[in-house]
């Protein structure tokens, strides 16, 4: 494997966004790019990252390899990279280590690190293709604000989507709260628009603790997409350039 990223910031942010949710992960490398899938310890949330080969220049992966990496270790090493450094990942066949180099674009500084790899026996889940009943695309900062504000009151949030809009409601010991958003097109700045596409009404309840955690990815993208269908996990997607993405799935709370 040899994969060169123009900006180390991208990998720094991705790892930063998921390191509190998942610890030891396989980075599955093949000629289409670098993918990661991992559940949190309680098996309530699933992280799915795809960094497409087009996000790297150049990208070369001659044989499929799984790089088992501890994200705390990776974070320590990535801290040594500046956001605008050129980052290159290298690994041999059947590797013991992954090699990372950080090159400063404006000086002759080159730093180089090896991280020891681990054998990670992770179950890989098949994520079904789902036609979601409701898809909401909103500013990622707005979603962060809603989850943060409501998490101060309650452990759970009910998300209801109807043709009127989307409503986030919570009930807690001190009282209750809700935030409603309607479809809204911001003509000056499309990134601030709220787009809602609905085929049938949806009402689901989720743990706010996980949603707050997902919002650590807000720095990766101006926009976030929420996809919901009744009685299936919520998909929270942060799109990256070149069709790469960081997705989080969250199992709902169901029943009385």
């Amino acid at each position: 494997l040899e994969a060169r990223l123009e900006q180390a910031a991208m990998l720094k942010r991705v790892v930063d966004a998921i390191k509190d949710l998942v610890q030891d992960c396989n980075f599955d490398c093949n000629d289409s790019g670098i993918a990661l899938q991992a559940m949190d310890n309680s098996h309530v949330a699933l992280v799915s990252m795809m960094l497409k080969s087009e996000s790297f220049s150049p990208f070369r992966c001659d044989r499929n390899i799984a790089l088992g990496i501890n994200l705390t270790s990776l974070t320590k090493v990535l801290r040594a990279a500046q956001g605008d450094d050129i980052l290159t990942l290298k690994a041999e066949d059947a590797p013991d280590v992954v090699n990372l180099t950080f090159e400063s674009p404006e000086s002759d500084r080159l730093s180089e690190y090896d991280i020891k790899l681990m054998d990670i026996d992770q179950e890989h889940l098949g994520i079904p293709d789902t036609e979601y009943a409701a898809t909401i695309t909103l500013p990622s900062s707005e979603f962060s604000r809603i989850t943060r504000d409501l998490s101060a009151l309650s452990e759970s949030v009910a998300i209801e989507c109807t043709k009127e809009g989307v409503k986030f409601t919570c009930t807690g010991d001190i009282g209750n709260g809700s935030v409603s958003l309607r479809q809204h097109t911001n003509v000056e700045n499309d990134a601030k628009s709220v787009d809602i596409s609905l085929t049938e009404p949806v009402a689901l309840t989720f743990s706010l603790k996980y949603l707050v955690n997902f919002c650590k990815a807000a720095g990766l993208s101006d926009r976030v997409r929420l996809c919901l269908s009744n009685e299936v996990p919520l998909l929270v997607e942060y799109g990256l350039s070149n069709n790469s993405y960081l997705r989080f799935y969250l199992a709902p709370k169901i029943g009385d």
């Binding site: 098996h43 179950e123 890989h124 889940l125 079904p128 309840t205 996990p233 199992a251 709370k253 029943g255």
Partner: peptide
Amino acid sequence: RPSQQTIGKFFGNS
């Protein structure tokens, strides 16, 4: 009180 489901309940092993 609704109970927290797990991801495995919805997504099968691949």
